[in-house]
Design a protein around this nucleic acid. Sequence first.
RNA 1: GCUCCCAUCGUCUAGCGGUCUAGGACAUUGCCCUCUCAAGGCAGAAACACGGGUUCGAGUCCCGUUGGGAGCGCCA
Length: 463
Amino acid sequence: MKPRVRFAPSPTGALHIGGARTALFNWLFAKHHDGVFVLRIEDTDRERSTKEFEKSILEGMRWLGMDWDEGPFYQTQRMEIYKGHVKKLMEEGKAYPCTCSPEELDESRKKAMAEGRKPKYDGTCRNGVTHPDRPAVIRFKAPQDGTTKFHDICRGTISFNNAELDDLIIARSDGTPTYNFTVVIDDVTMDMTHIIRGDDHINNTPKQVMLYNALGYKLPEFAHLPMIHGSDKKKLSKRHGAASVMEYKELGYLPEGLVNYLARLGWAHGDQEIFDFSELIKIFDLDAVSNSPSIFDTEKLEWVNSQHIVKKTNAELVELTRPFFTKIDISLTDDNYAIQVMEVERERARTLKELANISTFFFNDEISIDPKAASKWLKPEQIGRLQELREAIQEDQQFSVASLSKIFNEMAERNGLKMLKIAQPVRVAMTGSTASPGIFEVLTILGKERVLKRFDAAIKGNS
RNA sequence: GCUCCCAUCGUCUAGCGGUCUAGGACAUUGCCCUCUCAAGGCAGAAACACGGGUUCGAGUCCCGUUGGGAGCGCCA
C-alpha cells in the first residue's frame, strides 16, 4: 500500500524551523515511498488563526520546494464531519455533556497540582450534568483502568496507564470540535497511514488512540520526531533569533541549504553531510531518524549553505543575488559582468546576502574607503607608488591577469618590496577594503577605465 | 508535582555485542598555500553522564540514579 502522510500546521504563526523539519520528513517519506503528501490547515482556533499566517505557511512550503499532492484542506470546512462523529459517540454512550465552568475546572486543576496529584477532570458530569442551565461541552468517556499503548516507528511501544488520562473535551460549548478529536477524524477520513510529527505530541497520542478505539477505526503507524531546540536547549521559539522560514530566505539562505541542514537534524546517512533534493528523496527513511533532541546551530547552517552556493552556476547566482543587490540599491544591468563577479566571489560568502554585500565595489561608481585601511595602506609614500603603477597600467595594452601580474612583480622587485606592500594599497584603492578576491582578477573585471578612475580618486583623496 | 520521552566531542552525528586505543562534519588551535580575506590541504585539542547487572566480552542489551526535554487547556 502506498503511504499517505500529512503536514498539519495551524495558521496561528508563520512556518517556523521546527514545523518545516516536520513537514520535510513527511514530504521526504512520501516521496521516497512514492506515496501521497497532503497538506491540512488546522484552523479550528478561530481566535488566533489568520489568513496571513496561512498564506505565509504556504509560501514557506513552496519556497522550500515541498509541494503537496492533496489539499490544502481546512478543518473549518469539515465541521459537519466532526459533528457527525460527536453525535455518534453520544448516541453510543461514549461521550457526555459537561457543564463544569472553566473557572471550576481551573480551580480543581490548581488544587490537584498543589496536592501533588495529576490535574485531571474529576468526572463530575459523568453521570448527568450538574448545571442544566449552563452551556455544555462534550467530553469523551475515557476508559478509567487498563493501559493504552501504541507502536512508534522511532521508539517502539509506548504505553500509558489509563488512570493517568481523563475525559477530554471533544467539543467546546459553542459546538466546535477540539484538536485531539479533529486530528483523529481527519487522519482517519483522509486515509493517513503514517502520522509523523514532533515528539511533543507523544502525550496526546494515547488520547487519540482511545478515540480511534471508541470509533472502531484502525490505528495508523506513528513516528515521533525529536524536537529542535535553541542554544538554551529549550523548544525553539521566536526568542531564538530568526524563527520563521521566510526570514531565512531574507537572510540569503538557499532552500536547498536550509533543507539539507534541517534534514541532518535528527537524521543521518553515515558520514555524508551534503545532500541535494533528489539524493534525500532517494535515501531518506524513518529508520535512520534519531530520538534525541538537537540544537539549531546557525554556524553549521551557514557552512551547509555555502556548500550549496558553490554548486550553483555563475548565471544562477546572478539571478539569486539580484534581489539582495536591489535591496542595497544596485541593479545588475550587465549580466556578463555580474557573472565574472560571481566567479571570483562565489567561494567567499556563506549566504546570498553576504555574496551581494561583499561584491558592491564591483558595481558602485563611488566606493567608500575604510578609513582604517586608508591610514595603513594609503600613506604618502604608498600614494607615490600608486601613481607610478597607475601610469604603467595605463600603458598596458593587454590588461590581463598575466600582464598585470608582471607589472606588479616588476614594481615590487624594483623597489625591493614584497608583493603585499604593493598589492594592498591597490586593493584598498579599488575595493575600499583590505580583503577582496585576487587583485589581478579584481582589476581585470573592473576594466581599465574604472581602474584608472579609482587610482585617481585614491591618489587625489590622499595626497 | 505527576506522566511520557531522551542521554557519544561545545554543536550535528556514525556506531545497530568483539574490527572503538570511538569515526566524520561545524566551530576551535597550529601549520602549509598565498597579494589580503576566504576557499583548499595537513596536523591538533575535544565525547561514550554515573552506578549496578547480563555476557568470555558492553558506547552497543537490562535496571536504577542523575541530568535534560515535553505534556498535563472549552490551543494546536
